[in-house]
Simulated assay, not measured.
Amino acid sequence: MNFNEWLSSRLDRTKTEGLFRTLQTVESNADIHDRRQVNWASNDYLGLSKDQRLISAAETALLQYGAGSSGSRLMTGNTDWHKKLERKIADFKQTEAALLFSSGYLANIGVLSSLPEKGDVILSDQFNHASIIDGCRLSKADTVVYRHIDMNDLEKKLAAVQDCFRRFIVTDGVFSMDGTIAPLDKIIPLAERYKAFVIVDDAHATGVLGKNGGGTSEYFGVRPDVVIGTLSKAVGTEGGFAAGSQVLIDFLLNHARTFIFQTAIPPASCAAAYTALKIIEDSREKRRLMLSSVKMIKAGLEQMGFAVRGGQTPILPVIIGDAQKAVLLADGLKEKGLFAPAIRPPTVPAGESRIRLTVTADRSLGDIDDLLEGFQSMRKELIWEHEGFFCDRN
């Protein structure tokens, strides 16, 4: 069997399991595959990626600095815009300092592969993002997984690793596939009791939770040791960051390989992100309307009999169960002008395939009505054709 035949045989298994993926081409912010599709899968929670204020800020920096950054931050890629944005992120997250990475994925890997040492242990939530999992794998520390937001299980496992040199608890702030919120108000006291450090990936909470959109730390009024985030979701641009004490940032600047050896994000992206953070601080009404829409959609879908998780964040997973049935539902919604792809293993556990809806601030009441009508129509079409289409709510 040659190389391509071997790969084809593996892909055939992927197709048989209903897990084969293809890329979706987005022609603009609204058009997918040359058809008008209302996008219910975007992480652009506040609709800032197409805000003219961000575009203008990026254009100005683009003309001044050019399209790229030319090198890593430690070589030729450090500009006033990078420093200005880091200061803004630190103020926004209420920390001493912050450090930009080229993506949130690289920030997680950089922090987790450099902070814990051999003899330490990382306690990681069962449903943490792939970037956290990969960061744990690259760390010299051991990793112990605790059940999803189960504080009894976390405490039991903390008690069992007291002989390790150091203990690190790492968790998503908002879990991207379930929309659940990590209970930092319980995790922080546990960490203090068992002498552990807390690392929070606030990718899906930044700009969404808290009075000023500061994320889970502001939402609960707590201070983790390390806050990681991305600029590619509610902030509407690109890049990632770590925020915390000045000594933490000095350490990462000198030891995080994904910072040291990675080309810096372009100054134009920094200018756009800086503008976005200023807008987010004044976007309380946007967040309120967005979360009001979330409650409306969840109530409507549950009334139809769908099993819906979340409800406190823009992420609403509609749990279907079987991967092929989830694809059927997504394809049917797409035919009705509703873009909401199926999420299947390995992104989610086997038997938990879903339609992951995300509710953005630019969705109108008419859009919401169309979405609910689309689900109701697909419910009628599919419930008779596929026995057991709806999974158990539990």
Rank of each mutant, 00 (worst) to 15 (best):
G239K: 14
E27W: 03
T95K: 12
Y65R: 11
T95E: 15
I181W: 00
I280G: 06
E27Q: 06
A141Y: 03
K157V: 00
G221C: 09
D51K: 10
N2H: 07
K88F: 01
E373T: 06
K211R: 13
S70Q: 10
I320N: 01
F3T: 11
E238M: 13
K50R: 11
H129A: 15
D331P: 00
F241W: 13
Y146V: 06
T230W: 03
V198A: 05
N78I: 02
V208P: 03
G239H: 12
A299C: 01
D282W: 03
P317C: 07
L154C: 08
L365M: 13
V38I: 15
D163F: 04
T360A: 03
V226D: 07
G310C: 12
N254R: 15
A299K: 08
K84L: 13
Q303M: 05
L357N: 04
R10P: 00
T230N: 08
R36L: 07
E117L: 14
D31G: 00
R223G: 02
D12F: 13
N78M: 15
D172T: 05
G18N: 13
R288Y: 06
T275D: 04
S364E: 00
Y45N: 07
R166T: 11
G18K: 11
T206M: 15
G229C: 09
V198H: 10
I187K: 02
A264D: 08
R193T: 15
L329E: 01
W384N: 12
